[in-house]
Design a protein around this nucleic acid. Sequence first.
DNA 1: TAACTTTGTGTAATTCTTACACATTAAACG
DNA 2: CGTTTAATGTGTAAGAATTACACAAAGTTA
Lengths: 246, 246
Amino acid sequence: MAVTSKENLQKNIKTLKKIQSEVQSINRVALSVDCVIFGFDENKLKVLLIRSDLKKYQSKWSLLGDLVKPDEDLDTAAYHILKQRTGLHDVYLEQVHTFGEVNRHPAGRVVTVAYCSLINIQHHRLKILDHELHWHAVESITDLAFDHQKIFQACYSWLQKRVQEHPLGLSLLPNKFSLRELQNLYEAILNIKLDRRNFRKKFFAMDFLVDMGEDEQNVPHRPGRLYKFDYEKYEKKKKTWSGIDF
Amino acid sequence: MAVTSKENLQKNIKTLKKIQSEVQSINRVALSVDCVIFGFDENKLKVLLIRSDLKKYQSKWSLLGDLVKPDEDLDTAAYHILKQRTGLHDVYLEQVHTFGEVNRHPAGRVVTVAYCSLINIQHHRLKILDHELHWHAVESITDLAFDHQKIFQACYSWLQKRVQEHPLGLSLLPNKFSLRELQNLYEAILNIKLDRRNFRKKFFAMDFLVDMGEDEQNVPHRPGRLYKFDYEKYEKKKKTWSGIDF
DNA sequence: TAACTTTGTGTAATTCTTACACATTAAACG
DNA sequence: CGTTTAATGTGTAAGAATTACACAAAGTTA
């Protein structure tokens, strides 16, 4: 099988050259990444948006994005945006979907890879004021630039689903949090009300919460216990899918 | 807010031109789509592979893919491959992930968008013999060309998860199928054994199966009932996610 | 010290999941 | 034609998970 004859080798080199020329010439497009950066503040789910350079006059907001350099991995490009815009490097980031319609961008063919990121809004407050960068409550996001509304919607739906099978949502909270905060978070993301006792029971039953032995401070009522999430334990024990459930 | 002053307009045009030049010049990469095409035959889950043009001498197999033309949508490009290679046009196709590592392809920077497709292998048998196109059982797929092993693995994992929340798996079966076939399908995809009675109970409880009033033919034992899947009913009733379950 | 607000906890009813066995049907074989 | 073979079709009881729901305790504020 693995007879590497001279002809085969030459044929192969020829084919490679052909592909290379195809790759180099006409068949190229611009590639960008766009990040949907979620935060959680005042019990609301928020998204970080920037006033679009382009179309500024229409006062439209857009997602944070940039062109991918020819020598840059996609993930790297997305991390770069996060670092640049929020100053954070240790963030949850996951690719969601690629949008490649021919006419999606006014500047020509630009295919964009959408990433979803979740950050702790408190670690970050500082860097915001410069630029035209602002947090927007998800319900209020209605008319973004380009096809960013669609991209945002895809990422939000993705988050709502993903958060039910993976503890990524916790990236939105401080390291120590109360169960009320945790519940508020899920209620905000899923846009539903949950039963407090059952929510609590469920999370304790998962057994990933570590009691920090501390209570909340400066609350005008009985303070709640603070917990952290044990990611290591989660990684070991995480649910191995099985059950058909349309 | 919406004051469209002349300066703003001019500034905007200038910005657009700047982006256009960035988009047109250096910041471009080749884009391809790769399809992981699943089929189901002899109670095994299979994938359609082609002998790589390139690296042919190493007898490696690869996924079916092609460069995306500058005037072609991503989904269109993926459909095109399916049409071209299988002759089928009415297939289940979904984007899974985009792979964009700088050095993933020997011919230069090629970012590829991976699609997953499920086809009914019986509607298709004919077109296979030409080309170096073959079905491979998923367990036997170990050493594909380029990073195709990684792409295949991502799509297979995606399928295993997706099939538990969406009836896409049924695209792999004929329109009329027995419950045994259906169970074999799920067992093959998930690579587990399922209890026959409970499986049956579960599917009937979903209430998406329509009794065709016919039995299997030419089986050397008691024939099973044939059913079809009611996609319309599914679309109406489909489960609205809710439950946290890591 | 009384009023307020939110925490923390338990149980009963219901639904869902799992494990498991036997009679039935058709084809194949002698 | 009767026996064997191989799969279909069905029900139930035990256990697990989910839901709905109410009251005492702990701090803060006035």
